[in-house]
């Protein structure tokens, strides 16, 4: 299998995980909205995963870059860049990205919710894009394998 197939298999898995993560974010935030959770718990839960999310995205973006998938990279980069920007720009005194003391202020909760829904949309799209590319690359693989195949039988035949 070529690099591409591995890359896309990985990206599908990674993207799937990110998708789950973002769904988890959305659920947790909506729990907070409905008062099933208090702000501290909610933010604790979320902050744990913020870094993981950023790493997962960055790794994927870097892999895309390394493997020369320019267009995919350019598509994927903005979301990643934005995530990293948010992470870097958080105020020094804040507790993680989601600060329990601020989350109810200035309608941050709504903003977060919106952000995460957007993220979810983009992950969903990318998930299918990567799925598509994975399929393509695997098909190519089999195609090329098939193309190669004829070469073997003769060998075998000759063996026989």
């Amino acid at each position: 299998m070529g690099v591409d197939s591995w890359l896309f298999i990985f990206s599908v898995i990674d993207e799937g995980a990110l998708l789950f993560l973002v769904v988890y974010f959305v659920i947790t935030l909506s729990d907070l909205e409905c008062d099933y959770l208090n702000a501290t718990n909610c933010c604790d839960k979320l902050n744990k995963w913020v870094l993981v999310e950023a790493i997962a995205q960055c790794v994927l973006a870097v892999l895309l870059l390394i493997t020369g998938h320019w267009i995919l990279f350019l598509m994927y980069a903005p979301v990643t860049a934005w995530l990293v920007y948010k992470l870097v720009n958080k105020l020094s005194g804040d507790i993680g990205m989601y600060d329990p003391t601020e989350i109810h202020n200035r309608q941050q909760l709504k903003t977060y919710m919106k952000e995460n829904l957007i993220k979810m949309g983009s992950h969903l799209i990318f998930f299918f894009i990567f799925l598509y590319w994975m399929t393509i690359s695997l098909l190519n693989l089999t195609k090329s394998a098939k193309a190669v195949e004829p070469m073997f039988p003769p060998v075998e035949v000759s063996d026989l």
Binding site: D35, N38, A39, T101, Q107
Partner: peptide, 14 residues
């Protein structure tokens, strides 16, 4: 609805 809280406290829920 309340947009922002000001003062010394912790906003536990909305």
């Amino acid at each position: 609805s309340i947009h922002t809280f000001h003062g010394n406290f912790f906003v536990r829920s909305t």
